[in-house]
Design a protein around this nucleic acid. Structure first.
Length: 275
DNA sequence: GTGTTTGTTACGAC
DNA sequence: GGTCGTAACAAACA
């Protein structure tokens, strides 16, 4: 699921494969995936080359050699990139394809059509209009204190708000709260200074680990909560061990917060002294 | 066939 | 205008 670490991986992948090759043509299987008019997109990109990248949260911006033409990609819940030679089969779900002059293609993989691609003229303007806050990796404890102070919503929900911490998604929010020992339902504005500082440390620790492991969840340290999630069973095929807290052994709870599946340890992450 | 999952946005209510 | 809860979107998978 493309959250910040995956998108960072896609950014590095695009940098390593797709720069400085003129775009001859663009295949668009479904215009619903575009945030820019198809004709304008084609006109803006035909003959242009990618020159560099920037990631903010889950957004990947790709600079071109044309002023004011920046491609913005959002990978939704299942998006991916695939660079391949035209002599090979087009990957499944490559619904938008950049055809480079040298014969290579960059496919924007969209299995569920929740992905989006389009042109932005200025990144800062785009971020302001879309209300996307600081990238999670850039956040200081002081930043967090300010953005959480006005929120009465559960901290889990606040962390998913891209205005609060751009790039944090559902499993990362749970992992952060587990590391910082904060109950997901605790109102955001009630976090103590110590909890906010622990959260900021957890953001660095969890995101940098996930990026280093190229977001392969099975490779994450055994101390991570992520192994309790139903879809990460790979190293534990014949045991239920992973359903327990890696710190204290308590059975991990599974509740819904803001309509999202939420995992936490009822022993390590307390709402109050009585629970 | 049914339920679940994911990120974002739209839509009211306050 | 900010905040907050909820539903909707598309498609795959079990």
């Amino acid at each position: 699921m493309p959250e910040l670490p995956e998108v960072e991986g896609y950014r590095q992948y695009l940098e390593a494969t797709s720069l400085h090759q003129p775009i001859d043509d663009l295949d668009v299987e479904d215009t619903k995936l575009l945030t820019t008019d198809p004709m304008l997109l084609l006109e803006a990109l035909r003959g242009a080359s990618f020159t560099g990248t920037r990631r903010v949260g889950k957004n990947l911006f790709v600079y071109t050699d044309r002023p004011g033409v920046i491609v913005r990609m959002h990978f939704g819940m299942t998006g991916d990139l695939a660079y391949y030679h035209q002599s090979l089969d087009r990957p499944r779900h490559a619904r938008i394809v950049f055809r480079f002059r040298g014969g290579y293609h960059l496919g924007f993989i969209c299995p569920r059509k929740f992905e989006r691609i389009g042109i932005v003229h200025d990144i800062e303007t785009f971020l302001r209009e879309k209300k996307i806050g600081k990238d999670a990796l850039e956040l200081t404890a002081a930043d967090l204190e300010i953005v959480l102070a006005s929120r009465k919503t559960p901290i889990k929900s606040a962390l998913l708000d891209q205005q609060v911490a751009a790039g944090v998604g559902n499993w990362i929010a749970d992992e952060l709260l587990f590391h910082a020992r904060i109950h997901p339902l605790k109102p955001a504005h009630q976090l103590t200074t110590a909890e906010i500082e622990a959260l900021q440390v957890a953001i660095q620790e969890v995101l940098l680990t996930a990026i280093a492991k190229e977001a392969r969840y099975a490779d994450f340290p055994a101390s991570y909560l992520i192994h309790a999630r139903a879809w990460d069973t790979s190293p534990y095929e014949d045991t239920q061990q992973h359903l327990n807290c890696p710190r204290c052994g308590t059975l991990i709870n599974n509740i819904r917060v803001g309509g999202r599946a939420t995992y936490f340890c009822p022993n390590c992450q307390r709402l109050g002294p009585n629970d």
